[in-house]
């Protein structure tokens, strides 16, 4: 028996919004420690890694490890049937071929359940070693989202250049070029608005705007984001989901022409 309950359906909707741009379907691996998801986008350029801890749920039970392959468009249809403040419970029997979503309104006057067929997905998992990055940038997630959106008007790629002075995001194309520089800030009063850089050595890498913009669909999950970079390895964009877990996106850097 698997059962996981969240007080707010809105959180699950945000998690789904954060992955459905990149993935059509995904396997949710459930164990007694929580729910994990790892999947590459269809072009295999980026990778999504989601972790939801068991203790972040209001109720969590997983008697046997279970992998639930879900079509994310179908899951979106079902979650649209929930109000954001409805409680959601995800349930499945061991070896089940379907999963049930139960939505309960705040006053319990409306209870609805939706059953969805599960899929057998043959997904390849990649082992990602813990790495010391040359630089790690912590910044407001809304600012990162804004920068990606603004720069994607100019070109298909963004150059991220990190030095001890700060971080520079640049893009160029037919209409011209754009540069956005962020300096480190020391605003202790508004910690969530700070930009901080842990720098071992300066790094400059180029990434596709299209993927960065997809990653920023996780912005509603967290007001902070971290960007971890080292030369010639994938960028890691991480959003901590408060009291529940995290979502990480990995993106291969552009190859030098």
């Amino acid at each position: 028996m698997f059962e996981a309950r969240l007080v707010s359906s809105g959180t699950l909707k945000k998690v789904l919004d954060a992955i459905k741009d990149l993935l059509n379907e995904a396997s949710f691996d459930c164990s007694d420690t929580g729910i994990q998801l790892q999947a590459m986008d269809s072009s295999h350029v980026s990778l999504v890694s989601l972790s939801l801890r068991a203790d972040g749920f209001d109720k969590y039970r997983c008697d046997r490890n279970l992998t639930m392959g879900m079509n994310l468009a179908s899951m979106t249809k079902i979650l649209k049937c929930a109000n954001n403040d409805d409680t959601v419970t995800v349930k499945a029997q061991d070896d089940a071929d379907c999963v049930t979503f139960v939505f309960e309104s705040k006053k319990q006057e409306k209870i609805s359940d939706y059953e969805m067929k599960l899929m057998n997905l043959d997904q390849e998992h990649l082992g990602i070693p813990e790495t010391d990055f040359s630089c790690v940038i912590h910044m407001p997630s809304g600012e990162f989202s804004r920068i990606c959106r603004d720069l994607s008007q100019f070109g298909e790629s963004v150059i991220i250049s990190c030095t001890k002075e700060g971080v520079r995001f640049s893009s160029s194309g037919d209409i011209g070029s754009a540069n956005i520089k962020l300096a480190q800030t020391n605003n202790i009063d508004k910690e969530e608005e700070t930009v901080s850089i842990d720098l071992q050595e300066p790094v400059t890498l180029t990434f596709a705007c299209q993927y960065l913009n997809s990653f920023t669909k996780a912005t509603p999950l967290s007001n902070r984001v971290s960007l971890s970079m080292s030369a010639n390895v994938p960028l890691v964009v991480e959003y901590e989901i408060p009291d529940l877990g995290h979502i990480r996106y990995y993106l291969a850097p552009k190859i030098e022409e």
């Binding site: 590459m40 072009s43 295999h44 350029v45 980026s46 990778l47 390849e124 998992h125 990649l126 082992g127 990602i128 070693p129 298909e156 790629s157 596709a208 299209q210 390895v233 994938p234 990995y250 993106l251 291969a252 552009k254 190859i255 022409e257």
Partner: peptide, 14 residues
Amino acid sequence: LFPQEEIGTYYTPY
């Protein structure tokens, strides 16, 4: 989109 390596070239499948 510009030429780009697959993410799988950086990590080992398991």
